[in-house]
Each structure stands twice: as structure tokens, then as C-alpha cells.
């Protein structure tokens, strides 16, 4: 009877009051206290990586700045001091600034970088009190001595969130060609060594099947 169906709705909503039941399960995440795990390839704020010997990877080529669709990167290269070089090779980036009021986190800079110097972390929870603070310079962007991103006081880092900052690098081959699937095409990194390719892109997997993303890292 239709009139009884009318009252069935009341039973449905009443049943949801029992949070132990399947349909009544609370879906809210109490955000500042607990965080949802982030996707492995989330685009957050950038870091400038270093080699295992502590040298900076950036060579000041300005490819990132020229490819940036939001014009948010400003780079100036300079010749290395021969006695005490900052990066292996001729030049290094001596000014590197990213304006986070402009950045759209498209990761094109990461794709353009020939030395994998710039990668993105999974951190997006940061705020500023004025526009000056929104411009990250080398002081903030370069990784710390242990190879991990700097935990700046206005950023909300939690336990384990500064891991896997260059996940994207490991996910695809640098040139985007399927011939490079499973091959390590990148240099070692300070604090991490040489990162392995993702399992789904390894040589044992047939390239016919759709590539799987690695399971989401539990970040809390």
C-alpha cells in the first residue's frame, strides 16, 4: 500500500540512528584531528631535490619557468664556483621562487625538468598572512639535509606526510614513452637512494592491462 510505503521512509531514517549498522555508518572525517589518506600522485607544494652527495639537482635552465602556464616560477641561473660547486655541472639555480598565489599545481614544471630537481610533495595545507609569504624562495623549497621537505611552521605536516615526495617521478618514465616502462631513468636522491619504479609499471606486468595506481599511502 502506498500509504505504508510513506511510513517506510521514517523507518529508514530511524535505522540510520544506529551508527553501528552498515547503513548508519558515520562518514565524517574530523578534519583537523584526522586526515583522509591522500592519493599517491597528489600535486602539492614543490620541493627542490638534492643528489645523494648533497649537491643540488637544479641547474638553473629555466625550463620550468618557461613551461609554467601560470607564470608563477622565477629562476635565475649562475655559474658554479669551481672550488665549491652547488650543483654538478656548469651552472646552478641561484634564485628560485614560486608564487603560490598563482601556482595551479599542474606539474608541468616537474615534467619539464631535465634533472628531476623539482618535484611536488603531497602537502597542500598551508596558508599565509600576506602576499610576501606566498612566494617560496630557495630557502623554503630546497629539501633539508636528510632529503625530506622542510616542515615550515605555517604548513600542516603530519607524521609520514613528508615521505614519497617524488611519487610522480617513479610513476611514469620521464619521456612518457612505453619503452621506458620499468626502467629506472632517474638519479639517486638524498635520503632515499635511487627510487624504484612502481610495481604496476615493472617489467613483469604486461603493458596491455591498464596500469594500476599504487595503493593509497596511509597518511594520518
Amino acid at each position: 500500500m502506498s500509504i505504508l510505503n510513506f511510513f517506510k521512509g521514517f523507518a529508514v531514517t530511524f535505522g540510520k540512528l544506529n551508527h553501528a549498522s552498515k547503513s548508519g555508518k558515520v562518514v565524517t572525517t574530523e578534519y583537523p584531528e584526522e586526515k583522509r589518506s591522500k592519493p599517491a600522485r597528489l600535486h602539492g607544494r614543490h620541493v627542490l631535490n638534492k643528489y645523494e652527495d648533497g649537491m643540488e639537482k637544479c641547474i638553473g635552465c629555466e625550463l620550468c619557468a618557461s613551461v609554467c602556464p601560470a607564470n608563477c616560477i622565477y629562476v635565475r641561473g649562475a655559474d658554479n664556483d669551481l672550488e665549491n660547486p652547488t650543483s654538478p655541472g656548469e651552472r646552478f639555480g641561484f634564485i628560485y621562487e614560486i608564487n603560490y598565489l598563482r601556482c595551479i599545481h599542474c606539474d608541468l614544471c616537474v615534467e619539464a625538468c631535465p634533472t628531476q630537481a623539482i618535484t611536488e610533495t603531497k602537502l597542500f595545507e598551508f596558508s599565509f598572512m600576506d602576499r610576501e609569504q606566498a612566494i617560496y624562495t630557495k630557502d623554503e623549497l630546497v629539501v633539508a639535509d636528510d632529503g625530506k621537505p622542510q616542515n615550515l611552521p605555517w604548513e600542516d605536516w603530519r607524521q609520514g606526510e613528508d615521505e614519497h615526495t617524488s611519487e610522480w617521478m617513479r610513476a611514469t618514465s620521464p619521456s612518457g614513452s612505453a619503452d621506458f616502462v620499468g626502467l629506472v631513468q632517474w638519479a639517486g636522491e638524498l635520503g632515499y637512494g635511487t627510487r624504484k619504479p612502481e610495481s604496476s609499471q615493472g617489467p613483469n606486468n604486461s603493458s596491455e592491462t591498464a596500469p594500476e595506481l599504487s595503493p593509497e599511502e596511509e597518511v594520518h
Binding site: 531514517t13 540510520k16 540512528l17 551508527h19 558515520v26 574530523e30
Partner: peptide, 10 residues
Amino acid sequence: SAMQNRIGPS
């Protein structure tokens, strides 16, 4: 919110 799988003001 208890009827809508939420927790409401807390």
C-alpha cells in the same frame, strides 16, 4: 545529522 551519516556540530 545522525540520520544522515554525519556527526553535526561538534
